[in-house]
């Protein structure tokens, strides 16, 4: 996407920052929701079911 045609209305959040935030979010969701470690699964069990992640 082109960054040349920036008007005053457009925000200027660095793409790298957005990427860091998005990756952090995805990592949190993976650990809490999808990782198949036994301990994680047992601890997060009820939340995984309630939020609709594939669990067992």
């Amino acid at each position: 996407m082109s960054t040349i045609a920036r008007s005053g209305e457009k925000a200027d959040v660095k793409l790298a920052n957005i990427l860091v935030v998005a990756l952090l979010g995805a990592a949190l969701i993976f650990v809490a929701g999808l990782a198949q470690s036994e301990t994680l699964h047992d601890a997060a069990h009820d939340v995984r079911h309630a939020v609709g992640f594939p669990c067992h």
Binding site: K10, N17, V47
Partner: peptide, 24 residues
């Protein structure tokens, strides 16, 4: 874990919001 899951969703949501603001 509920806080963890929604913190993760919050991060993705704000990242998407920021991306949309970059596009005007």
């Amino acid at each position: 874990f509920s806080i963890m899951v929604y913190a993760g969703y919050g991060l993705l949501l704000v990242a998407a919001m920021a991306l949309s603001e970059n596009n005007g």
